[in-house]
Design a binder for these strands. Sequence first.
DNA 1: GACGTTAGTGACACCCAGTGCCACCGGCAA
DNA 2: TTGCCGGTGGCACTGGGTGTCACTAACGTC
Lengths: 197, 197
Amino acid sequence: MTTLLPDARADTRARIEQAALELFARTGFEQVTTDEIADAAGISRRTFFRYFATKADAVWGDFASHVERLEQLLGAARPDQPVLASICAAYVEVNDYSAADLPMLRQRMALILGEPALQAHSQVRYADVDRVVAEYVARRSGERPDALLPRLVATTTRAAATTAFEVWLAGGTTSLGDDLHAAFDQLAAGFPTLRTA
Amino acid sequence: MTTLLPDARADTRARIEQAALELFARTGFEQVTTDEIADAAGISRRTFFRYFATKADAVWGDFASHVERLEQLLGAARPDQPVLASICAAYVEVNDYSAADLPMLRQRMALILGEPALQAHSQVRYADVDRVVAEYVARRSGERPDALLPRLVATTTRAAATTAFEVWLAGGTTSLGDDLHAAFDQLAAGFPTLRTA
DNA sequence: GACGTTAGTGACACCCAGTGCCACCGGCAA
DNA sequence: TTGCCGGTGGCACTGGGTGTCACTAACGTC
């Protein structure tokens, strides 16, 4: 049963993830038990929890590597670029999926943004993103990462990115990058549309 | 055992809440079982879940009424005031606790912002706040509540308010109202501090 | 005062997520 | 062959949350 090729674990992980995602999309996150996922993936329930710490984690793929990539992009951002522009560019870059991967992304995000249990879990994941962004803003502004401004920029830009995701998901016509840019433009300018209202 | 004064339920609820909060603050949220809360409050475990849908809800008090009050304040906001100023004022007003209630608030917020399980649960609660604010922005701007701008303002202002809470909680010297104003000022102006950086 | 009604409650059984533990098995090196 | 080691399955257990039923105390009605 155990083929010890170096990526055997990665294969199993991918198989579990795929089985879980399909079941979640069809029946809803709460309705699917970990027993059913394990059965569908051909493993035991105990093994499922060796690949994913929680049922929710099966939806998030390798989110940690996304955060790492965001961190690298921010670390390599041009210093002459405005801080918010760098953050926006990093968000766009990290979420630049190929057309082939878009359906999978839509499915994932529909679950994360739609299912209350996953919405709740997302907060924990976003904390990592916020920490990375706050550290970048701290470097650029000379403040401490736990000061108001770095934290504020981190949480509000992440809120903007999430909202752009929601709008993109609901609308379907626009591109995700455009929605992200639109949200960041509003944020960076202090919501100019509102001032004329 | 059951005295059927009209507010007997409210009394019991308050007693449970107090017992839970004290146990959480002393031992940590995850360490306390619902059995222990029930024992401390002099009720059965089953009854605990008749007063609070989840263990986490015991920390949030009557949050629904806070949201209602926020909605009323926004409904009564002066139309000549900038949108963000009205939202800020409403947030400040809703969170304007008397000096006597501040210790309780600190305890509550320290739990909500510090314990991962409660952080996760908070997302679900914030969704109600966001909906109320988005509807207000929609009214003021003439857009639909599910359009980008109303949602964006709702999520970013709430992120700003939460961050102000965190800074207030960590610092301890400033007043919560001042921190809220500072955060909203940055947000409304598009983070002017960053531009000079 | 006996009556049914109703709200609140406790006890019990149950489901499910998540964990700790142990036994097993396949590959691999000495 | 022996012993180690990583992945696995089985199993028991904890703890949050739910459904159900029986009990009881207050209340109104006849």
